[in-house]
Amino acid sequence: MLLKDEVGTLQRVPLFSGIEPTKLKLLAFTSDRVSYSSGQILFRQGDEGDAAYVILSGTADILVDSDSGPIKVAELVPNSIVGEIAILCNSNRTATVRAASPLEALRIRKDHFLRLMNEFPEMTIEILRVLADRLSHTTADLIDARSAK
């Protein structure tokens, strides 16, 4: 996959949809193209967050450690982004991400990501929107879980 194709992929990621293509190209150029074979770990829960990943092709599982071993909480499909929370909060990884098939991804370094947020308010707003969305989902799930008790 060439740089220009990656730009196409990035445009389909909701987070980046508001950013002009030349800037996305710059983001793609300065990011590392990484590939993983099935079963390889992108990062582990508890690691320091140093990069976010945009999945270009293949799928990955999001796993969370529990007393009874890792539990799969979600699946990543192409054009999704993962790992941005640890970058934003300066916290450790909240989950492990493992490739479920041969995986191609774009690795965006933390400092590049933060710099982009500084320069593109529309991207920051988009991130806020996604996060708020997730929060409302989580809240809804919590209410469901509480009321099911």
Binding site: M1, L2, L3, E6, F29, R33
Partner: peptide
């Protein structure tokens, strides 16, 4: 200085 897999200009 060009490396195809890294710079991906095709």
């Amino acid at each position: 200085a060009y490396i195809e897999p890294r710079h991906r200009f095709g």
